[in-house]
C-alpha cells in the first residue's frame, strides 16, 4: 500500500503530485534503501518539469536543510518508521506541509494506548484488543496522537457488547460531545 500523506486537495495522486512539484525550484529526494522503485514516477515528473533533483541521505539531511533555498521541495519515501522519523526532523526545522511530500510504503499500524493504564500495546489489526498490561478490553479507535505515535484504545464494557449486539461498534472514536 502506498499512501500519500500530503493532503493536497482533491484530484488524483498524479494531479496532486504535479501541483506539488510545479512550485518547486529544486527537489531534495530522500528514499529508504530498497524503495527506489516506488519513486520512479516522481523522478520522471521532476525531470519533465526540469526541476533539479538532489538525492540526499538521512545523515546529510540536516546540512542540506541549512543551506537550502526557499522554493525547495522535499520528497520522502520509505516505510512508516522511516518517514515518521524524517518528518519529525523536517517539521521541527519549520518545513510546512506544503513543502513536503511523503510516500509511505507498506502498512501503517500504530501502537494502541490503553486509556485505563497508558500501556502502549503493540500494533494490531482488528477493532478490539485486551490490554497486555491491565487486561482491560479496548476498542482500537482512529484517534491518533502524533506526539505519542499511538491511537487511543477506549475502554469497552462487557455490557456494551451485549447491549449493542446488532451493531458491535461502540464507536466512541472521539470524546463525547466534543
Amino acid at each position: 500500500m502506498m499512501r500519500n500523506r500530503t493532503a493536497a486537495g482533491g484530484g488524483t495522486r498524479k494531479d496532486n503530485l504535479w501541483a506539488f512539484l510545479q512550485c518547486a525550484h529544486s527537489l531534495l529526494f530522500l528514499c529508504q534503501d530498497g524503495q527506489q522503485e516506488s519513486c520512479s514516477a516522481v523522478l520522471q515528473m521532476a525531470s519533465d518539469l526540469q526541476i533539479a533533483v538532489r538525492t540526499v541521505t538521512v545523515e546529510e539531511l540536516k546540512n542540506e536543510l541549512g543551506s537550502a533555498k526557499i522554493g525547495t521541495r522535499l520528497y520522502v519515501c520509505g516505510d512508516y518508521q522511516f518517514v515518521r522519523g524524517l518528518e519529525n526532523v523536517l517539521f521541527s526545522f519549520g518545513i510546512t506541509n506544503e513543502e513536503l511530500w511523503s510516500d509511505v510504503t507498506g502498512a501503517t499500524v500504530h501502537p494502541v494506548l490503553c486509556a485505563g493504564c497508558y500501556h502502549r500495546n503493540d500494533p494490531v489489526a482488528g477493532s478490539y484488543i485486551h490490554c497486555e498490561m491491565c487486561g482491560r478490553m479496548l476498542e482500537v479507535s482512529n484517534h491518533y496522537s502524533k506526539k505519542l505515535d499511538a491511537v487511543m484504545g477506549y475502554i469497552v464494557l462487557p455490557e456494551q457488547l451485549v447491549f449493542k449486539s446488532e451493531e458491535p461498534q461502540p464507536s466512541r472514536t472521539t470524546p463525547e460531545g466534543r
Binding site: C23, A24, H25, I70, G71, T72, T96, N97, E98, E99
Partner: peptide, 10 residues
C-alpha cells in the same frame, strides 16, 4: 512570493 515557492502559511 507564491511564484517563488513560499508556502502560503509563510
Amino acid at each position: 512570493a507564491r511564484a517563488i515557492g513560499y508556502p502560503k502559511q509563510s
